[in-house]
Design a protein around this nucleic acid. Sequence first.
RNA 1: GCACGGUUAGCUCAGUUGGAUAGAGCGUUGGCCUCCGAAGCCAAAGGUCAUUGGUUCGAAUCCAAUACCGUGUACCA
Length: 571
Amino acid sequence: MLRSLIEQLVFASLQQLQQQGVFAAEQPFVFQVERPRDKNHGDFATNAALVLAKSARLPPRQLAERILSALPAGQTAVERWEVAGPGFINFFLTPQTLQNLLVTIGQQAADYGKSHSGQGRRIQVEFVSANPTGPMHLGHGRGAVTGDVIVRLLQAIGCSVEREYYINDAGGQTLVLGRSVLIRYHGLFGQEWPLPEGCYPGEYVLDIAKALQAEQGDRWLTPTPPERPPQEVVDFAIARCLAWIRDDLKLLNIPFDTWFSERSLHEEGLIVHAIEQLASKDLIYEGILEPPKGKQPEDWEPRPQRLFRSSRFGDEVDRPLQKSDGSYTYFAADIAYHLNKAERGFAGLINIWGADHGGYIKRVQSALAALTGRHDLLEVRLVQMVNLFRAGQPVRMSKRAGTFVTLREVVEEAGADAVRFWFLLRSSGAGLDFDLDLAMAKTNENPVFYVQYAHARVHSLRRRLQDREISDIPESPHYLQRLSEEPERELLRHLSRFPEVVEQAALEKEPQKITHYLLEVAAAFHTYYNGYKILDEDTDLRAARMALSKAVGQVIANGLTLLGVSAPEQM
RNA sequence: GCACGGUUAGCUCAGUUGGAUAGAGCGUUGGCCUCCGAAGCCAAAGGUCAUUGGUUCGAAUCCAAUACCGUGUACCA
């Protein structure tokens, strides 16, 4: 990375000054090397003189001069440097340094942008984990794509990442599903029963019932559908929903390594195991919670419950582990699940959750802190909801009115590329408007096409070269010197940033940084393409510009690959 | 009430671990195809970075209050 090159230069100079007594022997050097917003301020700038002025007891500009005079001799990357503003040091790279980048990109090809800074750290990302009680909706899709790209980013910086889906195949909601199916199933035999409050009304429930009828006949037919459905019916329904979910994820090209069953936690005694550990630390007691502040539930009544002292670990109040009927709460299972994750030895855990689970973060983290002593093991990223639009108008969705639009319908209509790219356009913490018509538009209003078009243009140039039978680009890169125009330098600067962008996006778990970077590269290339003739008559110039264009194509392809979006050669 | 997220151009949003004159798309106005893909480009206009105070060489960014918006708020998942 070019940035670390500059960092090393500055650091060497500071050490030199330290030997000269400008700094105390134990002085730590904390400074930044950054990309100036304004290109008149060079390719890189450092604030070292500003930050260290106090400890050197020198005015910043004066210290900056000292730093410059102590920079190691013999380096060839930087053409010139200057002291600017209040005491910044600006570095201007030699043209060769940027031009040689094209050789690097050509050699590294699909690997350009990757690094090993993750040092093989084992990280688990748990995402989607949508309840297997119905089809996936847009919000699930956004979480799925976000999680998938965070995995890809972490892998790109050299982490060893595992993808996991937590299946909520235990608990009350699965029984509700089973009951809903069973009632619809009876309807298929002419026994119409009204759907009780809380049951799932969706069309898909009927589909499951039909499948049950087709595969198992009238086996589950009874005079009245029982309130508690047989486990086999529940399992049938869950399996059906899970199959749909797997198909939806496949449509979006999102694989998983592990499908972890909540029920297995119950069956293998892991919940008991976790609660015993909490009990051994004296963190469990029988108690009655205060009524919640603000909006009071109407059916609130004081109940003695088995509680975990999560408030000792940063949570607002203690949390119940068992319901009044004695069965475990979802939270109890989640404690066991996360303890299990910790015991599997991951160096880091990342959960991608819908924003409606935000209030849940502290209690899970407090449980992990209590059981493992680690407060930073689990990192949770929240993904805000998606609003569906069509031609600028919001699409009203209602489960009851049957106007619910599923993820599958949107993916089938707009395509996986458009859906993925759009989901990655905004930071996950902010709400997202998804316009179906815009996502399918073939104009620069549609950022997906804008980026893909830039890539296709590069390949169009390559095809042209072959048509004219002049693909005889010299092997030695001497001709790269011909890249002297400002837009060319601008493009090279953009390309040189790519590894930095990948690293930052990975560390901060912010896929949209890649998306926006690609939009910038595409814009810079479109500008260049319109202003300059790539396939010039001059052989060397043509070769140089093609080398630049091919590098642009490579970087866009690498970036799109990180996003899981295709990079078509023709459109 | 509390917790979390948000507040930046008419609209939708970026904004690099605090950096120099705050950016993009859409929309508006005006230009560019005898030339490599106009699915593109160029230019103009458009801002009290919600408000107030604080921290420091320097704040959209950090801290504290305030005001709105969203989500969640015992025994659902």
